[in-house]
Amino acid sequence: MIAVRRGIAVIVAVLAVGITLAACTVDGEAVREGRAVGTDKGHVDTDQFDKLLAECEVLPSSTIAKAVGGTTAESNFFGANCRWIVQPQQIDVTFNWFEWGDYNLEKETAQNLGFTTENISVQSQAAFTQRDPKRPQVCGVTAKSPAGGIFTWWVEPEAAQPGDPCAGPIKLMELILTGAN
């Protein structure tokens, strides 16, 4: 009987805590780290940007394919991230440009995800490679964008390729930082 009472008491306590936590509110406004309240309006008049997705056209598909050792590249997504599939080796290539991205935060995030990072320089810009030890054939390269924010190229072959897995994303970063297109 004592055990039943204790069990009921535990259940009631858990329910009470759950209900109390569900009813909690926090005063204030959610604000992105490093920003002041009211500075991020959350809306963008896209009519002001005639080339809103131009970053996905920063390099021709043929140049992307050649840089990673393929013959053709077909874009399969334009948006926050730009993606291509390179043939015939089946290599996924991803590019993103975070206009307000923070280089150090990006590196810290990669390390928190368990990726190994290595500082490099690409076209005199600070950069780093990021590698997932669980997927040794995959490499990403992040660099500071001359226009602000950060660029990142990821190259993910379906199967291991000969040579340095970071050679492709480093080459793509060199091309974008020199304005090659």
Results as ranks from 00 to 15, higher is better:
1 M>Q: 09
3 A>S: 06
3 A>D: 03
4 V>D: 12
5 R>L: 08
7 G>Y: 03
16 A>M: 13
17 V>S: 10
17 V>P: 01
19 I>E: 05
25 T>A: 06
26 V>A: 13
33 E>R: 07
35 R>T: 05
35 R>A: 13
36 A>L: 09
37 V>G: 04
38 G>S: 10
40 D>C: 07
41 K>M: 05
42 G>Y: 09
53 L>G: 02
57 E>N: 15
57 E>V: 10
60 P>C: 08
62 S>Y: 03
62 S>V: 14
63 T>E: 14
66 K>P: 01
67 A>K: 09
67 A>M: 08
72 T>K: 05
73 A>Y: 02
73 A>C: 05
73 A>H: 04
76 N>C: 11
78 F>M: 08
80 A>H: 07
81 N>C: 12
87 Q>Y: 01
88 P>G: 01
89 Q>E: 14
89 Q>N: 13
92 D>F: 15
94 T>K: 13
95 F>R: 14
98 F>D: 11
98 F>G: 06
101 G>H: 07
102 D>P: 05
103 Y>K: 07
109 T>D: 12
111 Q>A: 09
115 F>D: 11
117 T>E: 06
118 E>H: 02
123 Q>T: 07
125 Q>S: 05
126 A>D: 13
131 R>H: 02
132 D>W: 00
134 K>F: 07
136 P>N: 03
138 V>D: 10
144 K>Y: 10
145 S>G: 06
146 P>M: 10
146 P>Y: 10
146 P>T: 02
147 A>I: 08
147 A>M: 12
148 G>E: 13
149 G>Q: 09
150 I>L: 10
150 I>M: 12
151 F>P: 10
151 F>Q: 04
153 W>V: 05
153 W>Q: 04
154 W>H: 10
155 V>G: 07
157 P>Q: 00
158 E>W: 02
159 A>I: 07
161 Q>A: 13
162 P>W: 00
163 G>N: 02
163 G>I: 11
163 G>S: 05
164 D>F: 01
165 P>E: 04
166 C>P: 02
170 I>C: 02
175 L>D: 15
175 L>W: 03
176 I>D: 01
178 T>S: 15
181 N>Y: 12
